[in-house]
Amino acid sequence: MSELTMVVEGERHVVVTRRFAASPERVYRAHMDPAIIQQFMLGPDGWSMPVCVHEGVVGGKMRYEWSDGQGNGFYLTGEILALDPPHRIVHVERMHLPDATPDNHVETTFVAEGDGTRMTLRMTLPDEATRKAMLATGMEHGMEASYARLEVTLAR
């Protein structure tokens, strides 16, 4: 178990880091293999990903479909922009809720750290419309008020 860090960078970026007890090769593959993505990229409890397409090549497509099993769902489409296995994945994605949110550019890097991997996810912060739509999907349920803003926005 390793703690996730999240900082706001500049005006439009959120940078997330997380350590994993596995090699960069394995963590990279976990982000490229639909069979593995389907098992962890699920967000809040109760959601599943019945459809997961990740073509795994530059110019290839991504399509993730989530369902809460009660008739609610949304999906993501994206394109893979650059790959540098096993260290870097760059892609662009947008949510369909069902209207498409603005493109979110995401760079994910994997660096060996001891016997594990430090993953860094650098993403563009969605604008107000995106967040509103995301909140409307019900993802906010169970969200707790926290002092996260102190570590997140005031740190550094």
Partner: peptide, 22 residues
């Protein structure tokens, strides 16, 4: 705060699952 807390919560769940898979 609300947005980041939501994102953080979703990612923490995802990566805890990935830890178990790995």
């Amino acid at each position: 705060d609300d947005y980041l807390a939501m994102l953080r919560r979703a990612l923490e769940k995802n990566y805890a699952r990935l830890d178990r898979l790995l």
